[in-house]
Amino acid sequence: MMKKLIQQSVEDSINAKKDFFVKNANAIISCADMMALALRKGKKILLFGNGGSAADCQHIAAEFVNRFQMERKPLPAIALTTDTSIITSIGNDYSFEDIFSKQVQALGEKGDIALGISTSGNSPNIIKAVHEAKKIGLLIVGFSGAKGKLKDLSDFPFCVESDTTARIQEVHILLAHILCDLTERILFNE
């Protein structure tokens, strides 16, 4: 029974990834091109999400700032999920819906990239931050599941066709690794 559950999870994860990357290969390449262009111009990536997606934001930011596959200079990426003093003061003084939008207001500049992650595509604090980012003129990269508002708000909507949060998150982290890999190759292999 347990081995069957393991095998089913592995097969579901592989299938979700195969389906997603076949459908989205061209958009991924275009997104990496835009990320590289922004970074080349001295812009930065702001990342935000909740729960496991918050951890993914930190993971992705680390890959850009430190390095991914090659030795190269650090690239500016900030996970807006990490400063507990900022998050708790905004949550306390305003609301949880404002924890990312106020940081986007403070740190975002026209031409930066906002990478919002919401498996449902409807997390109120993600949607509010994306609206704020759009006002400022940031490029919006949205990682979500198949449904939700984030898809329509994103310049690059990456929507995973699954109803299982774990499968969606597994595709998201592979997507993030691929975007980072392609971006650093564009910037440092030319």
Rank of each mutant, 00 (worst) to 15 (best):
D83N: 15
R67V: 08
K41C: 10
F68E: 02
Q7A: 13
H131D: 08
E97S: 14
L107Q: 10
R72M: 10
L107D: 08
K134R: 13
A27F: 10
V130C: 03
Q103T: 04
K43S: 04
G116S: 03
R167C: 05
F20A: 02
A55V: 09
N125I: 00
F158S: 02
R67D: 05
G145V: 02
S30G: 11
T82F: 03
L139A: 12
I168L: 13
L37P: 01
E63P: 03
G111D: 06
G111F: 05
L187P: 14
S123Y: 00
I186Y: 15
A114I: 05
S154R: 06
D155G: 11
D93V: 09
F68G: 02
I29L: 11
E184F: 09
D83L: 11
C57L: 08
L182D: 07
Q105W: 03
L187K: 06
R167V: 03
L80F: 07
P157R: 04
I127N: 00
T164H: 14
E184C: 08
D83V: 10
I6V: 15
V10H: 09
D12S: 14
F143E: 00
K73V: 12
H177C: 13
P157I: 02
D112Y: 05
S162Q: 06
I6M: 15
D19G: 06
N66Q: 09
K151W: 04
D83W: 10
N15Q: 15
E161V: 10
K149V: 12
I186S: 07
P124Q: 04
D155S: 15
R72D: 09
G116H: 01
S154T: 08
R40P: 01
E170R: 06
I186K: 15
D56A: 07
A36W: 01
K128G: 01
L174E: 11
A129M: 02
N125W: 01
T84Q: 10
P157N: 08
M70R: 14
I140C: 05
I168M: 11
G91K: 06
T165H: 12
T84P: 07
N92S: 14
T183F: 04
K102A: 07
L187A: 12
I86Y: 08
K41G: 05
C159P: 06
P157T: 03
I78H: 03
A54M: 07
I113S: 01
A166L: 13
A166Q: 13
A16L: 07
V160T: 12
A62D: 06
S53G: 03
T183G: 12
D155C: 11
D152F: 13
I60W: 08
M34I: 12
